[in-house]
Design a binder for these strands. Structure first.
Lengths: 356, 356
DNA sequence: GAAAACTAGGAAACCGGTTGCCTTGAGAAC
DNA sequence: GTTCTCAAGGCAACCGGTTTCCTAGTTTTC
């Protein structure tokens, strides 16, 4: 049985067809073939048709390397994840890829795994491949040193930001997200709000905590106790709940620094006989579906809209590539996602009386 | 303040240095410069040094497009995720990138999002870019139609497999994993094992369930009830536990089709007053750290070793690129990861008596 | 019927490297 | 002193396209 021939490889099965093959088949010169396929030059319509059908027959696809060589553009961007590819990087990448794919650009993926040497290696690789631009991303929102100085291509930092204020960074408004969480709890009538979050030295934990404290202060309120800094785990959420329950002060809401922590809190509250949201309302952060939906009850959470962030980053990169850079930090808002963990407002009237 | 000059752009800040720039600076011809940098030809050592230092000074990095054009190789592979990039794709990508990076190859990432049109679009893009090979992956292990016929470059399917047995696929041994889970429970003395898993039409659910049934049969045992097919969620795990508890038959172990299901089972068992593992031992599948570690108690699980799978796929692809294809399905073993949900063997003696 | 104008398409340079072949000059052999 | 040999490095073709410039042939115009 002879090998099936498809349009993809109708010519020689081994190497892909070149424009010379097309020109020969159509009986024209290479230059003419090029013009015919790109709608340039002045050619008879019949000639164009002949060339086009020859190209179809051979499954001709122009060699991108050749195009790159004389246009100087690769229609390729590099994406360097400074940490490991993870839960946060995925939606970022998806969003970026979305925006770039629409502009027919491809994405080179590089996972630097928190290793500065790998990072520089990848940077060199990308520059050697003459990418049109680079997106730098990571697992943490904390600002980092620029990946390079005076690079020949534009760079956009997404999620993570650069310490150089002249670099272009796109970051989620974590403080704004914390404000929304607190505002929501206040609107529900809760006044005794506790905060459980990740490690104090972690940028996101610090930002979210201080934003929460500040927002409460603006309403003349204090957090119940100090923010409980720990780790980003369910176990810590459970443990912290024990601390809260053991303390003298009562609380009617917990704002958590992550959905995982919130879930630990929910489990521990239930085990202690407290009802969510009736006795204690609960708000998480990240809106990680797997956690927020499986939580009992499903978790109200703050969504950083990472996919949109990735798209924005890609759009800014495309703009910079086209000569319209937009330097500086671009802050993009978070969104409050309502679910049952805050669904039932508790005795709003009596709460208001309590306040008076 | 003049712009800082770094090695990266010591020449003209705009366009990167070419080999002509290097040759001019070193006072030699372009060909000679090339030979000097690549250790070819016969040149005086002093000349080589001069060229090399000129290249250093200009931060010269050869233009990959030019290299591609005359070597025919791009040192690039495409990676098409047929589904969305997700939890399973990440370790696969990491592993693949690891193996490829060692061979100085870069990875083009394409997310086809379960859309056949996007898939074919990406395939064309990759072929037009003359990638040296393609890795196809996805969220499900079920075999899928080949992504293309008689493609000019080698293709390896990872995790997912191709329906064409002549294609090269690397898949986890899910049946073997289920065997390990059952064997482990049997070794602990459990004899009344139930199975809760995902949708019946889902390949992984079907394979794992029938492997479990078969392994029990080999020991002369039956599953407690029929496999409970549902969905891949904690909620289903909880619901299924209700069904098990309501049934007449007792059970002392549950093998779950995923860690999420297992976690739901664990929560529901605890709520019903059954102790894990004392009363009921629990084994999950996937070894998803976030679920398995946060579970109370931490979950024994089957790890498909996806990162290794990705590495293997990449290695097979590299071999195929180098002219040594290894067609067929390559099955790679799963690993049992022990944690507390099966830690305590229950009265092995009495169980044995019971069996007699 | 001859000059002008226009059209269709070919030839060749170019992008940035690599490589085979050829030239040049110096030292060795006679 | 002349020829031979060999080392060092320049020249040019080539990879696969695009684009500019030019030529040949046809049509228009007077």
């Amino acid at each position: 049985m002879p090998p099936r021939k498809t349009k993809e490889n109708a010519g020689s099965p081994g190497r892909p067809a070149t424009i010379s093959d097309v020109a020969r088949l159509a009986g024209v010169s290479v230059g003419t073939a090029s013009k015919a396929l790109n709608g340039r030059g002045s050619l008879r319509e019949e000639t164009r048709r002949r060339v086009r059908s020859a190209a179809d027959e051979l499954g001709f696809q122009p060699n991108t390397a050749a195009l790159t060589l004389n246009s100087g553009r690769t229609y390729t961007v590099g994406m360097i994840t400074t940490d490991t590819i993870g839960r946060f990087s995925i939606p970022l990448m998806t969003g970026a890829e979305d925006a770039l794919g629409a502009g027919r650009m491809s994405v080179f993926l590089c996972d630097a795994r928190d290793d500065p040497i790998r990072e520089q290696y990848y940077l060199r690789t990308l520059l050697s491949r003459r990418v049109d631009g680079i997106i730098v991303t990571g697992r943490r929102t904390q600002a980092r040193a620029p990946i390079g100085v005076d690079l020949p291509v534009p760079v956009v930092y997404a999620f993570i930001s650069s310490t150089d204020p002249d670099d272009c960074s796109v970051v989620p408004d974590e403080a704004g997200g914390a404000h929304k969480a607190v505002d929501h709890l206040l609107a529900l009538g809760r006044r005794r709000i506790a905060h459980v979050t990740g490690p104090e030295h972690h940028h996101s934990a610090a930002v979210r905590a201080s934003a929460a404290v500040q927002r409460l202060a603006a309403s003349g309120l204090d957090l119940v106790g100090a923010p409980l800094f720990g780790e980003w785990s369910e176990a810590w959420g459970r443990q912290a709940t024990g601390i809260l329950l053991g303390a003298a002060e009562e609380f009617d809401a917990v704002f958590c620094g992550s959905d995982q922590i919130a879930r630990g809190v929910a489990d521990a509250l239930r085990a202690a006989g407290r009802r969510v949201p009736d006795d204690v309302a609960l708000v998480g952060f990240d809106n990680w579906d797997v956690m927020a939906l499986a939580c009992q009850p499903p978790l109200t959470s703050i969504d950083m809209e990472l996919e949109g962030l990735g798209r924005t980053a890609a759009d800014l990169l495309l703009a910079a590539i086209n000569g319209e850079p937009a330097p500086g930090r671009h802050v993009s808002p978070c969104r409050l996602v309502l679910r049952e963990s805050t669904a039932v407002p508790v005795r709003p009237v009596s709460t208001r009386v309590e306040q008076l």
